[in-house]
């Protein structure tokens, strides 16, 4: 009962999101790390923000929790395959040029 009616997870989630967003802006705009580091950190921060939304705001574990998680994980799997696969194929598609 407590979990369903408490604003605490929302406030904690909002604080986490704000911190992660500010970090992303800071790393990309005000540091002079190599680009590959920046991109890695940026992706890690984005994935953390995704988890904050799913768990703190969207309550993914409520209801049919396990099936919802499987469904979202499968969606992400297809998404990563499409994005990474497309970039990989087009990057090494030098024979046409």
């Amino acid at each position: 009962m407590e979990q369903h009616h408490s604003a605490k997870p929302h406030i904690v989630g909002y604080l986490f999101s704000l911190i992660l967003t500010v970090l992303a802006f800071y790393v990309m705009l005000y540091t002079s790390m190599p680009m590959s580091w920046k991109i890695t950190i940026l992706l890690v921060l984005a994935v953390l923000q995704l988890l904050v939304q799913l768990f703190y705001f969207m309550h993914i574990l409520e209801g049919d929790g396990a099936y919802q998680v499987i469904n979202v994980v499968f969606g992400i799997f297809v998404a990563v395959t499409i994005v990474a696969g497309s970039i990989w194929i087009m990057l090494y598609n030098t024979m046409l040029e």
């Binding site: 049919d64 919802q68 469904n71 979202v72 969606g75 297809v78 990563v80 499409i82 994005v83």
Partner: peptide, 19 residues
């Protein structure tokens, strides 16, 4: 639950545009 499945499809939709 059906809406979660829809959101899974939305993830895929946006992934094609990102790609």
């Amino acid at each position: 639950f059906g809406f979660w499945i829809f959101l899974g499809a939305e993830i895929v939709l946006f992934s094609t545009l990102f790609a």
